[in-house]
Amino acid sequence: MRIDVIRPGELGPAEVTAWRAMQRATPHLANPFLSPDFVIAMGEVSAGARVAVISEGSGPAGFFPFERHSGGVGTALGAWVSLCQGVVHAPGAEFGAEALLRGCGLHVWEFGCLVGGQPWFQPFEVLRQEAVVLDLAGGYPAYLEGLRERSPKFLKSTLYKERKLGRDAGELTFDFAVRDEEQFRLLRRWKSEQYLRMGRPDRFGRPWVVELAERLHAIDTADFAGPLSMLYCDGRPVAGHFGLRSDTTLVGWFPAYDPAFARYSPGLIQHLRMAEAAAATGIRSMDLGVGTGSEYKEALRSRGEPVTEGCVRRRSAGAAAHWLRSAPVRRVRQFILDTPALYGAADRAMKRYGGLRTRMRAR
């Protein structure tokens, strides 16, 4: 096994073609966060972005994107915003985690949303969760019928609110792929305000995240795009979503809505309209990310897909030093996630803190 570490922008056409072929040959790797487009865009906003090109015989056998930090510590590429991570590989390829990290010059690699089917990392998983997936392979009517069977009250309530919103505020329209930059800025403002209310860190408070999103929004090809979807009432935007899609998979990333319309649940209406539009374009599944603590995701789901969190460490002094720094924090976090009462208390505390920040900002 040969490993060559390069910057994402150094990927050539032949390597990108091989990368896409691997994604098509292995459906669970079709997630757009594993695409060369996302990796190349990350390389334009992160100085530490790298790709390990893994070769066996005459050509590439896999691609391992990661972000390099000091002390030989690596993380998943764009870990703060990425919703799918891992090695993109040819069918049947086999790797050793220790050899892979050594070839990348890393003592440690941390991951937070590892895709399934990565046995070389499995011994290092410490937290296993499920991403919520909407199955659109049979078309939107089939998905809606399944939703009616699984979550009848949820669907009935959402459709009622959709009709009421139309009566109260004007005709509802939807656009799956909005190119207007002003509306993109509006969605980001809604999302930043939502983070503030919830007491969460504002992703769009980081300039590199804004730049990344703008670069991805500008891409629109058959293999990859960053679609901005918007729901309108009488021409006024009331909810939206910015996500990423491959040729078969749409990933939910940044949903938000105008709080003035909150009582109509416009975000839920927008998700159903988006699923319908995505299915019409040939998208076979929508991945909404981990559903822990999210009632609307659990209501919408067709099935779950495993995602894991963990940390690969080589047998080295650098890896041992990293363990001493990070293990206690990771254990506390996992304990909270595994204890519903503690998770609920932490969530309520963050929302109270968010409410306080919102009121202070309004003064």
Results as ranks from 00 to 15, higher is better:
G112Y: 15
E94H: 13
R128M: 08
G71E: 06
S70Q: 14
T75F: 13
L136P: 00
P141L: 04
L100S: 01
V88D: 07
F66S: 00
G74K: 01
L114W: 03
R68T: 09
L147D: 00
R68I: 05
Q129F: 09
Y143M: 01
Q122N: 11
L106S: 03
H107C: 09
C113Y: 15
H107P: 09
E125R: 10
E94S: 15
E145Y: 09
A131K: 01
A79Q: 15
F111H: 06
F124E: 07
W80I: 15
H89R: 14
F66N: 00
G92Q: 07
L147V: 05
G138E: 04
S82F: 08
T75S: 15
L144M: 11
G138L: 02
G72W: 07
P119C: 01
W109I: 11
G139L: 02
T75M: 12
W80L: 15
L136I: 03
F95C: 04
G146W: 01
S70E: 14
P65T: 01
G74H: 04
E125F: 11
P91F: 08
F66Y: 10
L77N: 09
Q122V: 06
C113F: 15
W109H: 14
A76W: 12
V81L: 15
W80T: 14
L101S: 00
L100T: 03
G92V: 07
R128I: 06
G146A: 04
L114S: 00
E110R: 13
W120R: 06
L101I: 03
E130A: 08
A99H: 10
G138I: 01
V115M: 10
A142M: 01
S70L: 14
G105L: 02
S70F: 15
C104T: 03
V87F: 10
A142V: 04
V133I: 12
S82G: 13
Q118T: 03
L144F: 12
P119I: 01
G117R: 01
A97M: 11
E94T: 13
V81I: 15
A137E: 14
H69Q: 13
F121T: 11
W80H: 13
E110M: 07
L136W: 03
P141N: 05
E67S: 10
L147P: 02
G116F: 06
V73N: 07
E130R: 08
H107L: 03
V87N: 02
G117S: 06
G116Y: 09
R68V: 07
V115F: 08
F66L: 02
A99T: 10
Y143P: 02
A99R: 11
A131V: 02
H89E: 14
T75E: 13
Y143W: 09
G112F: 13
C113K: 11
A97Q: 07
V126P: 05
G112L: 13
F121G: 10
Q129V: 08
V87D: 05
E125I: 13
H89Q: 13
W80E: 15
L136Y: 03
F124T: 07
L136V: 03
G105W: 09
W80G: 14
A97V: 09
F95E: 04
H69V: 08
